[in-house]
């Protein structure tokens, strides 16, 4: 059976979620692998949510927010800009390929960009292969 990556997408309400919506409305073809979770701002995505996604079996996580300067809460996505690279370092140390975590800026008008990110990431994760959290396998 071919491997279908499960990707969790945290999308900010003000830009990226609308961008995803637009992609849908405009019938732009994008891979069905991303399960979208809407958050008020990319800055609201607690690193624990991302770790939890991996624990629960996500093969990848993508965080999308407004372009820098456009955040509804001004500084929110600047926090994200620092948080995600930091978290990439952390998961790398946990032994998780950092390419499984992505940060992308997608505005409300960029339906095509949304589709592009989703397709590209799905392909990349497909190549990397499934992620199975080892703590769930280990009894001893």
């Amino acid at each position: 059976m071919s491997f279908e990556p499960k990707i969790v997408g945290f999308l900010c309400n003000w830009c990226s979620y609308s961008g995803a919506d637009l992609a849908g409305v405009s019938r732009i073809k994008s891979a069905p692998n991303v399960r979208i979770i809407r958050t008020m701002c990319s800055g609201r995505v607690d690193p624990a949510f991302i770790l939890k996604s991996f624990q629960l079996g996500a093969d990848g996580v993508v965080v999308m927010g407004c372009h820098l300067g456009d955040c509804h809460y001004q500084e929110g996505n600047y926090k994200t800009l620092r948080r995600i690279p930091f978290l990439k370092r952390l998961i790398r140390e946990f032994g998780i390929d950092p390419r499984r975590l992505r940060l992308e800026w997608v505005s409300a008008s960029e339906g095509d960009r949304f589709a592009e990110v989703v397709n590209e990431m799905t392909e990349e994760i497909r190549k990397i292969g499934p992620f199975i959290h080892s703590a769930t396998k280990i009894k001893k």
């Binding site: 607690d46 690193p47 624990a48 991302i50 770790l51 939890k52 820098l68 600047y78 926090k79 800009l81 620092r82 948080r83 690279p85 930091f86 978290l87 952390l90």
Partner: peptide, 25 residues
């Protein structure tokens, strides 16, 4: 707080004074 490390990543990310990816790295 479900995870000390995750929370620490947040705490530090909030106080780093940089807006450019290279500088952040």
């Amino acid at each position: 707080c479900p995870d000390q490390g995750a929370k620490m990543v947040s705490a530090i990310s909030s106080v780093i004074d940089a807006h450019e990816p290279e500088e952040i790295e």
